[in-house]
């Protein structure tokens, strides 16, 4: 599987990454290098092998339905570039 220029642009857009036009070709090369490297794994025969979900052989830990956190709006907003009346504020986003 090879990546073309259009795919690089699209992935950059979806990830909100700015890639200058003169860097597109380099990025395309890098993507392909990574994919080729991963591709080597297909040399191993995995017929009948269950996909490994985690290296931890434990079950998912669940929590009880209890309220243990909250009432810390000030702390939550502390790193916000902009906030007003207890809300985060952002440039207007209406679709």
């Amino acid at each position: 599987m090879a990546i073309d220029r259009e795919t690089v642009r699209r992935i950059a857009f979806l990830s909100r990454l700015k890639i200058e036009d003169d860097k597109i070709e380099d990025t395309e090369d890098e993507f392909n290098k990574i994919l080729n490297w991963v591709e080597q794994l297909s040399e191993v025969n995995t017929d009948g092998v269950e996909p490994l979900v985690s290296v931890n052989d434990t079950n998912l830990t669940l929590r009880q339905d209890e309220v243990t956190e909250g009432n810390q709006a000030e702390a939550v907003l502390k790193n916000a570039p902009q906030a007003q009346y207890g809300y985060f504020t952002v440039p207007k986003v209406v679709e």
Binding site: L62, G70, Q72, L77, G86
Partner: peptide
């Protein structure tokens, strides 16, 4: 563990998990 209460003051029922702070991990209810 933040409350689901509807009608609270803005951002009062927010944990650092909900706020997407780095390093915070989800635990399923």
């Amino acid at each position: 563990g933040a409350s689901t209460h509807y009608g609270s003051d803005a951002n009062e029922n927010v944990s650092f998990v909900d706020a997407g702070m780095p390093g915070m991990l989800p635990t399923l209810n």
